[in-house]
Design a protein around this nucleic acid. Structure first.
Length: 887
RNA sequence: GGGCGGUUAGCUCAGCUGGUAGAGCGGCUGGUUUACAUCCAGUAGGUCGGCGGUUCGAACCCGUCACCGCCCA
């Protein structure tokens, strides 16, 4: 039997460890809630991805940030719940399944509603929820045991209760008005699901004959000739002199022959076209309003597929809206009523799912009284009960909420929550939890049992996701989880769904829970491609996060997203950046490998406060500084600052300086110092792993476990450090800072005077005083090593022809007679003198300004004085150095 | 038309309450320093979009103009 010593490999193998680690976390229950009874809860609900979805860069960013927050709070000892789940995504899912059926030659209408819905469930079981697996690859530490789906039993129960309650409160009602109708998907959609797109079209100018006045016309312009079949008026501006005489007269609608009135309405813009505008109240939102003002007839001329219907002259019936357009233009031209065709670019509303132009269409739909629900939601933000980060997003929120329109919540689809409304024979509505309850109500109404028919429509998908923060916790049951985890702490999302989702969660949360659903809404940026274009399938510029994960590892992607998540700006993602952070993971890996090779093993009992060596007290201080900076950054959602703090502390401090500083110690002979340094090195590395873990969970966990087989816990469960200002040793910091500057100074001079990198030279320090001399003595060996010196000694004598530099009033001398070019060295030094003098001049300008002395805070003035003194000292030393060379 | 954001090094971006303009990448020079070439050392490069104002002091605050982007109508 022998001890097997396994050393770390040379490179970190992300692909080889990620899955294993994820499973070990999940299997061991690290993501689960309720492990710490006394702990304060911390809750985030995931923005539920569509069940049809696959992970795109926006998800990657969104979920990385949530995971960072959750892991951070979990390590800080909170009972962290990250509630996962998916959205049934009504239209999107129905489309996917319908497309699949079409490939098999099947049609949902033929198979019937029940069979179709069964198919959808079957599809979900087989191929839905791919994104759940992808979130796992991202490292998302959600509590999967609590996964919910907006269509599952509990959430459907919540939807039923909300609908029934709101109906009974009069906040849900049926109404007959214009809706955005998608003639492809054959359903109403909400205002938010309409995407206006710029289209190059035409503006057709038509003459409408004036009734009883042969040869007199009024000219109207339209982008949609086909709608003229439904015209019931022409509007002109009341102040428009051209038309004043025509107001109240009638025009004869060509092709139809209808007598239509000419009305005065401010909607007509005298500057636009002819100033007269045709009014089609049943097919245009503005015209609808005009129609209501003037009590105009509303003639619906389109069927649900946007074909001309029986309300139009027979010649056009059955024509598609675009065919009808051509026919009408041709017919008007034949009648010599087409005046002009203008090229015209205008906005056309498209359905965001169906992709075809939507039609304003008159139908009966279910509406929620959004204005009433919005009032408390507006107030909650005004009162600061919910805060947007960055703050300016509350303007966007207010703007929309204060102008909110009734929310059309019914959809003519099959996949979704069917509306719990039943109709009696006379269309009397009975809204109830289920058919039995509806029957009871109907019996009470009619005095007998009648045939009831259920409303076939389903609810807008966002209706159920509006309940997400409490429905996922068990509502309407009064569960312990609901008690404990609601309200949630923070919602992390993109600005594109503030209206769709955030606003509606606020409304529903306040209405049903009487408390805001979250205290903070963190709005992150949009991820764009490296040229700044929005990623889209049609542009083909999608960067697949999974491909980046395959190539560089999950941690590299996560760190990149975190580092680029500065508030308020979009992220232009480039592979190069991810590669850079992959290198960072490798760097960390190799630092650990070095520690392992040098016997720096973690020792849980080691107390860093016992460190005596200056260099060790310094790195302890640096870790304390990092902890403070990092926690501040995360607490204020400055993820980029968090990433930067970690990157600098790990690479530019721990690796570049601390590990280099301690090499002479570890290879030296001072056993006590070696022992302490090993312990501190291992401790500092552990701190970095702990603090890095929320952002880079995999490489840190892997190292944590490999560095010590006997850890009591996985890193994911490790405690977060608490040290801070008290652990910062200012003296040690000043001393090591001086050493860093000295070494950098010597390296710079060597390079500038072309001393070969490998050449060992000597250095002298003049006028260093006791401080510099002591520091030199204490750190001589590492200065020699890092500055590549033969020796460094204190000396008042300076050999001729030496290179010189100044640090804190001491002159550093590199005797290089014959090696350096005296003239060049003089020039170099004079340049540095010039810089110092420039600084002095600048400071003098301030210090000689009485107003500055009078107004600036004392510490600012004092700081300027100190800086001046330092600059003067440096300049004087440098001048002496120049004089010596020129002597 | 209304609203929001942006313009800082060659590129991508930091810069939180006004008080010495920073990073990464790229460039250039040099490195077989026993963790790492996915590395190390050094170095160049900026009138912080223009103009005006407030202030002792402005990349930062105010006004205005220009250009770019997004949202709403």
């Amino acid at each position: 039997m022998h001890l097997e010593v396994t050393m770390l490999d040379k490179h970190y193998d992300a692909a080889g460890v990620e899955q294993k680690l994820y499973e070990s976390w999940d299997d061991s229950g690290a993501f689960s809630i309720g492990k710490r009874d006394n702990a304060e809860p911390y809750t985030i609900v995931i923005p539920p991805p569509n069940v049809t979805g696959s992970l795109h860069m926006g998800h990657a960013l969104n979920n990385t940030l949530q995971d960072i927050l959750i892991r951070h709070e979990r390590m800080r000892g909170r009972d962290a719940l990250w509630q996962p789940g998916m959205d049934h995504a009504g239209i999107a899912t129905q489309m996917v399944v319908e497309r699949q059926l079409a490939e098999q030659g099947l049609d949902r209408r033929e198979m019937g509603r029940e069979a179709f819905i069964e198919k959808v469930w079957q599809w979900k079981a087989e191929s839905g929820g791919l994104i759940g697996q992808q979130l796992r690859r991202l490292g998302a530490s959600t509590d999967w045991s609590r996964e919910r789906f907006t269509m599952d039993e509990g959430l459907s129960e919540a939807v039923l209760k909300v609908f029934v309650d709101l109906y009974e409160e009069g906040l849900i009602y049926k109404d007959n008005r214009l809706v955005n109708w998608d003639p492809k998907l054959l359903t109403a959609i909400s205002d938010l699901e309409v995407e206006p797109q710029e289209v190059k079209g035409h503006l057709w100018h038509f003459n409408y004959p004036i009734e009883g006045e042969e040869g007199r016309f009024i000219t109207v312009a339209t982008t949609r000739p086909e709608t003229m079949l439904g015209d019931t008026a022409v509007a002109v501006h009341p102040e428009d002199e051209r038309y004043k005489a025509l107001i109240g007269k009638h025009a004869i609608l060509p092709l139809v022959g209808r007598r239509i009135v000419i009305v005065a309405d401010e909607y007509a813009d005298p500057e636009q076209g002819s100033g007269a505008v045709k009014i089609t109240p049943a097919h245009d939102f503005n015209d609808f309003e005009v129609g209501k003002r003037h009590d105009l007839e509303m003639i619906n001329i389109l069927d649900r597929e946007a074909r001309i219907n029986e309300n139009a002259p027979e010649a056009y019936r059955g024509l598609d809206r675009f065919e009808a357009r051509e026919r009408i233009v041709a017919d008007m031209e034949a009648l010599d009523l087409l005046v002009e065709i203008e090229e015209h670019t205008h906005m056309v509303p498209f359905g965001d799912r169906g992709g075809v132009p939507i039609e304003p269409w008159l139908t009966e739909q279910w509406y929620a009284d959004a204005a009433t629900l919005a009032a408390p939601a507006i107030k909650a933000v005004e009162e600061g009960k919910t805060k947007f980060v960055p703050e300016n997003w509350n303007k966007t929120y207010y703007e929309w909420m204060r102008n909110i329109q009734p929310w059309c919540i019914s959809r003519q689809l099959w996949w979704g929550h069917q509306i719990p409304a039943w109709y009696g024979p006379d269309r009397e509505i009975f809204v109830a939890h289920d058919e039995d309850a509806a029957r009871v109500k109907a019996r009470a109404h009619y005095g007998k049992d009648v045939e009831l028919e259920r409303d076939p429509d389903v609810l807008d998908t966002w209706f159920s996701s509006a309940l997400w923060p409490f429905s996922t916790l068990g509502w309407p049951e009064e569960t312990p989880e609901l008690q404990r985890y609601y309200p949630t702490d923070v919602l992390v999302t993109g600005f594109d769904i503030i209206f769709f989702w955030v606003a509606r969660m606020m409304m529903m949360g306040l209405h049903f829970m009487k408390e805001v659903p979250f205290h903070t809404v963190y709005i992150h940026a949009l991820v764009r491609d490296e040229k700044g274009a929005k990623m889209s399938k049609s542009k083909g510029n999608i960067i697949d996060p999974l491909e980046l994960i395959d190539e560089y590892g999950t941690d590299a992607l996560r760190f990149t997203l975190c580092a680029m998540a500065a508030p308020g700006r979009d992220i232009k993602l480039s592979k190069q950046r991810v590669e850079g952070y992959r290198n960072f993971a490798t760097k960390l890996w190799n630092a650990a490998r070095y520690c392992e090779m040098n016997g720096c093993s973690p020792d849980a009992t080691f107390d860093p406060a016992t460190a005596k060596e200056t260099v060790n007290r310094w790195i302890v201080s640096e870790m304390a500084r990092l902890r403070v900076r990092l926690d501040e950054a995360i607490a204020s959602y400055r993820f980029n600052d968090a990433a930067q703090a970690l990157y600098q502390a790990s690479w530019n401090i721990f690796c570049d300086w601390y590990l280099e500083f301690t090499k002479p110690v570890l290879t030296g002979s001072d056993e006590a110092a070696i022992k302490e340094t090993r312990a501190v090195t291992a401790w500092a590395l552990d701190q970095l792993l702990i603090m890095m873990h929320p952002i880079m969970p995999y490489v840190t966990e892997e190292l944590w476990q490999q560095l010590d087989d006997n850890r009591e816990t996985q890193l994911i469960r490790a405690g977060w450090p608490e040290y801070g200002e008290a652990e910062i040793d200012a003296e040690a910091s000043a001393e090591m800072d001086w050493v860093v500057r000295l070494i950098s100074l010597i390296r710079g001079v060597r390079s500038e005077v072309n001393v070969p990198a490998g050449a060992k030279i000597t250095a002298l320090v003049k006028d260093g005083g006791s401080v510099a001399n002591e520091r030199m003595a204490r750190h001589g060996d590492l200065i020699l090593r890092l500055a590549r010196l033969e020796s460094i000694t204190s000396s008042q004598e300076i050999p001729k022809g030496s290179a010189q530099a100044v640090i804190d009033g001491a002159t550093v001398v590199l005797p290089l007679e014959g090696v350096i070019d005296i003239a060049a060295e003089v020039a170099r030094l004079k340049k540095v003198v010039g810089k110092a003098e420039g600084e002095i001049t600048g400071i003098d300008r301030k210090l000689s300004n009485e107003k500055f002395l009078a107004n600036a805070p004392d510490e600012v003035v004092e700081e300027q004085r100190e800086r001046r003194a330092a600059a003067v000292e440096t300049r004087d030393r440098l001048k002496e150095a120049v004089a010596r060379l020129e002597a």
